[in-house]
Amino acid sequence: MPLTAAQFTSPYFSLYSKAKQLHWDPADVDLSADRAQWAMIKREHAGERYDEQILRLTSLFYEGEESVTRTLAPFCSAVSRAGLGVDKELFLTTQLYEEAKHFDFFARYFAEVFEVDGAITRQYITPAPQAVLIADLEEVTERLRRAEGRDRIIPVFAESVTHYMGVVEAMLARTGYVGAHDALATRGWLPGLQEGFRLVKRDEGRHVTFGMRCIAELTAERPELREVVSATFERHLPNVLATVAEFDYPQPLVDIDKLSAYALAQYQRFAAAAGLGGEVLSEAEYAEEGDR
């Protein structure tokens, strides 16, 4: 299917172009200062359990990035099968590459700074993140992979976009990256991890913008899909909140109230894009996510 003139100038093509411009390589992130600082954090802040909190955070990112890398391919195929536009397919190819890079970054970080392999992350994956980040995402994307016919693909695609870009990327990933980056930057800790968070968060902004635009487009054409979006958030919000609450330590590394407020704002923006709540997002609000 050719790229039409309209698609060549579409917001999805613009996001694709932005992804090409903002390329980065996980291998180029300088981790040289992080290993010594990690030893200091473990040695001098054991009482606050900061090392445990950092491992819990990064384990969620590690597992989450692995999960989203594994579950994105059905989106590309579904967009093609449903004829939703080559511009969307082009963008999704950049997202798949970026999710793989994010997983690559965390795998490298665990090996070179924490000096452990990724298996340690499993001990921090409790039932709430296991469900919302991994099991339920696998389930819906497997349904997306199997769906046949445009009318059957589109509702599952809307559910998948809401879960992947709305729940996992907007509410959990971007919230986590913002909270974690702020917590480390305030203390001047782990500059390599901070830089990784910054780069990953920038990519995730484009992914979330893509999801918001898709959902806005789909629900405008088929208003009944708003119920799909709403039900998807309803089903996963308890696990999102339970995941955020896991960072409510007696001496928290991250500001839990700020984290909650950010997650809530992300939800409200995504829901507004779907036309829930009666608000319509401005072009500036879409651009804000994708351009940061």
Binding site: S230, F233, E234, L237, P238, L241, A242, V244, A245, D248, I256, D257, S260, A261, A263, L264, Y267, Q268, A271, L276, G277
Partner: peptide, 24 residues
């Protein structure tokens, strides 16, 4: 804040969490 109470599990909610959070 009541929503922070919900997030931290200090306040239990019965009803649509999605609607409640939309009107936080």
């Amino acid at each position: 804040d009541p929503l922070a109470g919900v997030t931290r599990g200090r306040i239990g909610v019965k009803g649509s969490l999605a609607t409640l959070m939309m009107h936080a």
